[in-house]
């Protein structure tokens, strides 16, 4: 099975690095789309069904927290796995995110192995459900 991935980050550098990292994870990829903030990511969801979203917190227009809250309020998207990829290291913030429905957290700077492990964990869980 090949997977769709959505990467949401205002840094073109991080989007590119994350895209390359995802492609090297050993998971078959169907399509990767990228958005530079939460609003653009919501627009992308109109015609794209990702299996995982990797999302930054601190972005212009719509930040990652607002994006996650919008997904949680949507019957269509509330179960979409979102992994926050952020420079923030507060355990209080991470707990807030977990309560908001976020399924994973990767702190910048990240090693490729962290992204790979997160994908295996989330996609493996999806396959077990299926």
């Amino acid at each position: 099975m090949a997977y769709n991935i959505l990467i949401v980050d205002d840094s073109a550098l991080t989007r590119t690095v994350m895209e390359r990292t995802v492609r090297m994870c050993g998971v078959e990829i169907n399509e990767i789309r990228m958005a530079e903030h939460g609003k653009a990511a919501l627009d992308a969801l109109n015609n794209f069904w990702p299996d995982i979203v990797f999302c930054d917190i601190n972005m212009p227009v719509m930040d990652g927290l607002q994006f996650v809250q919008t997904l949680q309020n949507s019957p269509e998207w509330r179960d979409l796995p979102v992994v926050i990829v952020s420079t923030e290291g507060s355990e209080t913030r991470m707990e807030e995110l977990r309560r908001s429905g976020v399924q994973g957290y990767i702190r910048k700077p990240f090693a490729p192995e962290e992204v790979s492990a997160m994908m295996q964990q989330l996609l493996g869980a999806q396959n077990n459900v299926r």
Binding site: T14, G89, T92, K108
Partner: peptide
Amino acid sequence: EMLNMVCGNLLTEYFGAEPVFDLSP
């Protein structure tokens, strides 16, 4: 992006893992 990462990591190093910070672009 380097500054963004240095800032986030520095705040955790200096203040610990409990406090929450909002960062400007």
